[in-house]
Design a protein around this nucleic acid. Structure first.
Lengths: 218, 218
DNA sequence: TTCAAAAAGAACTAAAGTAGAACATTTATA
DNA sequence: TATAAATGTTCTACTTTAGTTCTTTTTGAA
């Protein structure tokens, strides 16, 4: 069994080699493991060599080879990973803000390029997400208000009843409830004052599915 | 296993062979790696040969063979890890979740003690915040739905028109629009089916002002 | 408090990288 | 095939980066 430091160092070496193709130097390892002196790294590596987790090419610099990874992680590492998981849940992610989208009459979408917004991480796990600013009132009965931030998951298909970003005739993007009826697509607003749009499937493309709403009263 | 220069050269050789079909000369390698002398290239190649990454056909010019290149992690895993790192950096704020609050009939508030929720940091700058889970439909016309997470900023007073957490008769907490009329406080729901409550100022205390909504469709 | 293990730091040794020139070999072609 | 041009090898000298070894300091557990 390795000590937490040994394990951490071993994983760092393995990771660095797999990511960059070359072996890290002692200086780099210092930073990664959180040790201030090279001699500490030296000692750790000697341990790893003795236990045959790594091999040193003699009289070479930056010449370590990882031979194996232990099956069991030290307790401290497990603890740490749990903490990271928790922190991840309590953290936010950056997703691009692509502009405004009509919840009423369709307006510009995919307008701004480099803006991003931060959203709680657990709203955007697994998948590719972006945000749109809601404009208009057509989805008001679904609790989606003018000015809300819609978190959209990129998708090309949708299930009936899902709220989607739909591109109509390759030019207007709109947020509506998706419903496939026979050979028609219905885009249903959530506001009595708006009409359902009934379109031929060839006219409509799904660009994403509504995954969340963030509103700020600031 | 490799030093950065060795790796760079190896990749250059490998790429050149794959692209042009023939091995680059030392002069070309010089330019690619950023070295002014051929002897440096020679030394690098000797190292690569020793580590069995390339093979030299003896007595041939431009006759190197790449035997192996370091194997990498799949790109999507690297992407995922980057995402996690970013997410950890953009970690959001923790605020206590104090329980459910009626947006209909008032229910328990200030119930749970140690639960917290995470919210995007910019929703909770300046001030003391807590969260409540919305229950009921009384604020539905304000886009506040059953199950939404309400981000509340602690406050003792409110302006007319603000949505507040109001404590009535020291026992029921409720989320309503605050309106002071003459010598009465009006707590206005946002739902035609609910009545405005008109109360004497001594009966009502402001406990906070609605600052944001987070909804997840997960 | 005491002791051992871990870490820090300094001083040192070794390897990697750089450069230029002279020399050797291979390749193209006159 | 003779020869020049292209290519590769070896050597020296030097700078920078990397790794080792030792002593001192800190830390943490008995």
């Amino acid at each position: 069994m390795l000590t937490p430091k040994q394990y951490k160092l071993l994983m760092f070496i393995d990771n660095t080699i797999k990511e960059t193709g070359c072996c890290p130097s002692f200086e780099e390892m210092k930073a990664a493991v959180g040790i201030k002196s090279k001699s500490g790294i030296h000692a750790l590596i000697e341990e790893l060599v003795e236990r045959e987790f790594v091999r040193k090419l003699p009289h070479k610099a930056r010449a370590l080879e990882v031979l194996k990874i232990p099956r069991f992680k030290p307790k401290d590492i497990i603890e740490e990973e749990k903490k990271i998981k928790l922190a991840l849940q309590n953290s936010s992610a950056q997703i691009p803000l692509y502009g405004k989208i009509a919840a009423g009459t369709p307006i510009e979408a995919i307008a701004y390029e480099n803006e991003t917004v931060s959203v709680p991480y657990d709203l955007v796990t697994r998948g590719d997400f972006y945000a749109l600013r809601i404009e208009g009132e057509s989805m008001i009965e679904a609790g989606i208000m003018d000015g809300d931030l819609a978190i959209i998951k990129r998708a090309e298909t949708a299930e009936n009843g899902q709220i989607v970003v739909a591109l109509v005739d390759d030019c207007e993007a709109t947020l509506k409830v998706w419903q496939k009826k026979d050979n028609e697509i219905w885009l249903k607003p959530c506001n009595k004052d708006y009409q359902i749009r009934k379109l031929h499937p060839s006219q409509v493309k799904v660009q994403g599915i509504l995954n969340g709403i963030i509103r700020s009263y600031n």
